[in-house]
Simulated scan of single mutants.
Amino acid sequence: MEHGDHGTPRMGAFLHLRGNGIDKGDPVALPLVQSSMYHLPGAPDGSNSYGRADNPTWVALEHALEHLEGAPCRVFPSGMGAISAALFATLKAGQRLLIPADGYYVTRLLADRYLRPLGVIVEERPTTGFAEGGFSGIDVVFLETPSNPGLDLIDLAAVAGAVRAAGGITICDNTTMTPLGQRPLDLGIDIVVASDTKAMGGHSDLLLGHVASRDAGLVQAVEDWRRISGAIPGPHEAWLLHRGLETLEVRFDRMCRNAEALAPRLAEHRAVSALRYPGLQGDPAHNLARAQMQRFGFLLSLDLGSEEKAERFINDCPLLRPATSFGGVHSSAERRARWGDAVAPGFVRLSVGCEPVEELWQALRDALDTL
């Protein structure tokens, strides 16, 4: 892999990753291989054998993701598919799992409804103070930083070192930051999981996820889980993500710059009673964000005081899509309390997109001015 400072991938080399390995007459764009069967006379001998185990479009996508992560990757049909693979590949009955109490709620549902009945001991801690109590006797520690939706941070290097010293494995959900904004593996984390449905794909037209690790044994365990469970990605979705990744740096840079410009303006608006963004100097997580993140991200959280005001802001702003995902080229927002998150009724998660920043600010300000 070719990487610059702090392990950040060289995106010029990334854009030519496929082109520098093709022959005369080959297509520059990645072909889509939509096949469940392969011509397989005689012994398999490592050839493509069956659609549940092999697909050239996946392989090309995983090669691209490997360049971004600086580690081997395996692709799954969704972010939760990736999280499930990482957890089922590392846990067994009687072991202890620690997860954030205020992270993505579906991870907690998976742990409570499926891992706990199989004999896994599940414990939860809030993101702030996550390291309090230590990690002795905990087999797998699942982290999410910044937390979704509260945007609190965990010191990845400190936790990774403490968990390793205690004999455990760390898994970090890096969905909100992408490998261009935060590099957990470089900070000592054992496994990274991510929903590529969000900023990695960026166009709100696919569901995919990936697992990355520099531990060959963990990668093999995750790959075995995928092949045996059948939790495989569709080749068309893999092709779409490969195409989306080619604009990731441009999109992510624009989104982060927009968020950095909007955060102080939103914080000063009379209708906003509270705002969280790690890029603000006054944010409780700012110093840690500066230490462990390459960018401050594109997500903001704000409290508009009531459910009615939050819904009106989201629905009346013409440059906001009311949607439950994030990371698209279009800005989107949602009131997270509607899903049962432990947040105020007027809490809004705002995903900043690629719109021209002054046009976006005018639309946001006009919507806020009516509250």
Score class of each variant (00 low, 15 high):
M1H: 04
E2G: 07
E2V: 13
H3L: 05
R10F: 04
R10E: 12
M11T: 10
G12E: 14
I22R: 12
K24A: 06
L30W: 01
S35G: 06
Y38R: 07
P41L: 07
P41Y: 04
G42R: 12
A43K: 11
T57Y: 08
V59N: 11
A60L: 13
L61D: 07
L68Y: 08
C73Y: 04
C73V: 10
R74P: 01
V75E: 05
A82S: 11
I83G: 01
A85V: 03
L91C: 00
L91E: 00
I99H: 00
P100D: 01
A101S: 13
G103H: 01
L118S: 15
E124S: 14
V140Q: 11
E144A: 06
P146D: 08
L151M: 10
A158C: 08
V159Y: 12
A162W: 09
G168D: 14
I171D: 10
C172K: 09
C172V: 15
N174P: 06
M177A: 11
R183D: 08
R183Y: 02
L185E: 07
D186I: 00
L187D: 06
I191H: 03
I191N: 07
I191Y: 05
M200A: 15
G202V: 03
L208K: 04
H210F: 15
H210R: 09
A212I: 11
A212R: 07
D215N: 15
G217K: 11
G217F: 06
A221E: 10
E223K: 13
D224Y: 02
I228N: 03
G230T: 02
A231S: 07
A231T: 06
I232Q: 01
I232F: 00
A238H: 03
W239P: 02
L241M: 05
R243D: 12
L245H: 11
E246H: 15
E249M: 14
F252L: 15
R254C: 15
M255L: 14
V272M: 01
S273E: 08
L280N: 01
G282D: 01
A289R: 02
Q292G: 03
Q292H: 03
M293R: 12
F298Y: 15
L304T: 05
I314T: 08
D316L: 06
P318L: 07
L319G: 04
R321H: 04
S332I: 00
A337K: 09
A337L: 02
V343F: 04
F347P: 03
F347D: 09
F347N: 08
F347H: 14
V348M: 10
R349I: 05
L350M: 07
L350E: 09
S351A: 15
S351M: 09
C354T: 14
C354H: 05
C354L: 10
E355C: 11
E355T: 12
